[in-house]
Design a protein around this nucleic acid. Structure first.
Lengths: 167, 167
DNA sequence: GACAGATGCTTCAAATTCGAAGCACACACC
DNA sequence: GGTGTGTGCTTCGAATTTGAAGCATCTGTC
């Protein structure tokens, strides 16, 4: 065995598993709430939230996809649904004929507003209830650098495309 | 406005978003690695890992589903795939005619062993690299209580069939 | 300018997900 | 024992996700 097997110590394992589990459970609960309160999936909510948060209320497709860590084709599908529901509009980007700019509509903002309180409540209840203010601050301080690290490491959206001619 | 709108302060928001993002990015990377290294989806890996970790190498379907936070029907599907691939076996539970016991096979253990090093490596690189030993310990100490809290809290809108006779 | 490769998005088929409904067994309780 | 409800798992259909392939446009280089 030339390769010394890499391993995680028990503390790391505990942190890793807890992270995965917490997020799975939270996501499940949130998904259910969003469905009931506003007939939105979690992805759709994330998309609307990102758009609503943007100064212009709009983003390009690729930015959205990267933002929520979704495949482009899935985003196309979801954007189609949201557009059909009147919550966003799609238009050709001004500076790039290929690009599509997605913009949240007033109806989209309303829907967002309708769903938000319940969303917050769930997160508050499930995630933050067992944590003190200092805990929350510590958690943020731990995770934000990790996120930045992850975003920085792989050249995102640079998935190599298969060549048509292998020669 | 009888209800004071619940809200999250900026620190909470930061922690929440970082949590979601970190997990999404991590999961994506891991998924890709697992696919390449051992032709396994993340769920399948989780299932095998849980089985491999169990003293008997087996679990009941429901326990698995609850463990990885999956729907029962999706689990049935995945268990079918794993069985077809020879990585697990399914047998009627001894003590309960309704129950199905899933057991990892030697081939399953081998597959797990084949995939594990790369898995660990990715987690190490993406999640733990920016964290000190103390950080990791702190992260685990923060998240584990949250997980326990979430597991303990019953879903707010009790599903139709969801009563457990806890005497 | 013209070309080759890169990029942005969509379309397509296949795989995976979920919830509801269904079936069979288990456990009370009378 | 019979009956009724609860539980364990699977089947079913519909919705969603994904990667590969396809188009249209952009960019760098000669």
């Amino acid at each position: 065995m030339p390769d010394p097997p890499p391993s995680l110590d028990p503390v790391q394992l505990g942190a890793y598993f807890a992270l995965i589990e917490v997020t799975s459970l939270l996501r499940h609960a949130v998904e259910q709430q969003l469905r009931e309160a506003g007939d939105l999936s979690y992805v759709q909510f994330q998309l609307l939230a990102r758009l609503g948060d943007a100064p212009t209320g709009s983003h390009r497709m690729t930015d959205l996809a990267d933002g929520v860590v979704y495949s482009r084709s899935a985003l196309t599908y979801q954007a189609g649904l949201l557009e059909k529901a009147g919550l966003v509009t799609r238009a050709q980007a001004e500076d790039d004929e290929r690009g599509t700019t997605v913009t949240i509509t007033d109806a989209g903002r309303e829907r967002l507003a309708r769903v938000f309180p319940g969303h917050i409540e769930i997160v508050q209840q499930l995630l933050f209830e067992p944590l003190s203010g200092a805990d929350v601050k510590a958690l943020a301080a731990l995770l934000e650098p990790v996120r930045d690290h992850m975003r920085a490491i792989p050249p995102r959206s640079a998935a190599p495309r298969r060549r048509r001619h292998a020669s």
